[in-house]
Design a protein around this nucleic acid. Structure first.
Lengths: 238, 238
DNA sequence: CGACGCTTTGACTGTCATCAACGGCCGTGG
DNA sequence: CCACGGCCGTTGATGACAGTCAAAGCGTCG
């Protein structure tokens, strides 16, 4: 694998990293310490792969910082982004859905930091830690909901509405307040957006240009700021 | 609800109904008896709804006979079919993914028979019966895979390929051997197929007509028979 | 400063949705 | 038994949306 950063076990990982995250929120310090002691932390460059579709699912991860795109590649080479995962969520949890290979590829959208555990700990975590299983299945439920929404959108909406929805979702998932509005807090290209919305980078570019002329958004290279979210919502529904 | 058939608890439900189905296959007669004794069996007319999107998830079901379409309806009234569920699978298992309302509506495609249990038994089943949880999560994993596949198909394939894929999937899921080929074993209209493939009934009709002229399929009212599966596979990949 | 990656814009084109009309099957009720 | 109405399917004409092709501008990084 070209992009594996070396794994380091940092003895000083702080309990506060995990304490407030849903899968671990019901645990006490001692339990969180146990979990951290078994974890491997890694830094990933932008564009690095945590794992590939079809690989044996040997580890599962908690994304501590950054963003990950979950991508599938077709036989013809087209990429389709299935999900966007923000910091604070588990990923690579194939075992939870009865799989022993990863169903998709995970690519970092920006520099990212992950904790990883060998998959054989999964069953132990589920059995031993209160709330871990419940919260995990909630996450899965939410992801199923997201996928469902995308299917419905792709089936019924025009490209403009889909792109508007995608931008709004990214903003609400990872928006950061800036002077002119709310900025999507990680680098994202027209190409990325087109893979999220099943269209082409050209069409996305045209749409963003048009929106910018109307004052709905501003965008620089790899950065998008939504200035008038309400107007975008209207667009996304027409 | 207009289409609730009366619930009957049939004392004579036979253990063999469940014994070979994955979620129950590791259980002994006594356990299966327990489970059956708590179940309510119901017959549903074609087009009946087992439950509606958004309803509180009060019961979960095992589909014993027939086929169910899992459908979402948009604010504008368009219907989109998210999944097709054949006999022998669990459905309405919102609790397994941490939800307390149903995420979609379940409509029978043909006459159907279900067993239903109150949702509060879910946690008990998971805790008490060996393999129940594991098999259930496998089912969820498969459904996630299916949804994923549909997203990728809708994002990258032409209508003709999508429809071909949908037909092939239905055939492999519920095909019945007949003299001229393999027939999809439940009634399905062009409209249904169009909701599965995000297109219109007109386009589906044109495609099926064209395929029929080429001898790939035969179709009567609500019935589709695939005569040359291999050719369809080729079509679905070009 | 050059090269590469990202973005923009214009012109053209094809697929597929839309509109419209009709034909046929099937169950129902007189 | 026949006539009717509703649902299902077919087919043609038209046009729009968005993909493809092509080319050039702009930022950033090495």
């Amino acid at each position: 694998m070209q992009d594996q950063a070396p794994r380091k076990t940092l003895p000083k990982l702080d309990e506060s990293l995990l304490a407030h995250l849903p899968p671990f929120s019901r645990l006490d310090r001692r339990e969180i310490r146990e979990i951290l002691d078994q974890a491997t932390s890694r830094r990933h460059d932008a564009g690095a792969r945590l794992f590939n579709e079809g690989d044996p699912a040997e580890r599962f991860y908690m994304l501590l910082d950054g963003h990950v795109r979950v991508v599938r590649v077709t036989p013809t080479g087209d990429q389709v982004t299935a999900l966007h995962i923000p910091a604070g969520q588990l990923l690579g949890i194939a075992r939870a859905i009865g799989r022993d290979t990863y169903p998709a590829t995970a690519v970092t959208a920006s520099e990212a930091i992950s904790l990883g555990w060998p998959m054989h700990l999964w069953d132990i975590f589920v059995a031993r830690y209160d709330g871990f299983a419940t919260e995990t299945y909630k996450t899965i439920g939410e992801r199923i909901g997201e996928m469902n929404t995308r299917i419905v959108e792709m089936a019924t909406q025009q490209v403009e509405q889909r792109v508007a929805n995608a931008v709004l979702r990214l903003v609400s998932q990872s928006g950061r307040k800036v002077p002119n509005g709310i900025e999507i807090d990680f680098p994202i290209t027209r190409q990325d957006l087109s893979e999220l919305t099943a269209t082409t980078l050209h069409t996305v570019s045209r749409l963003l240009s048009a929106w910018e002329k109307q004052g709905l958004v501003e965008s620089k290279r790899k950065r998008i700021t939504v200035c008038d979210p309400h107007a975008l919502v209207l667009l996304s529904q027409s």
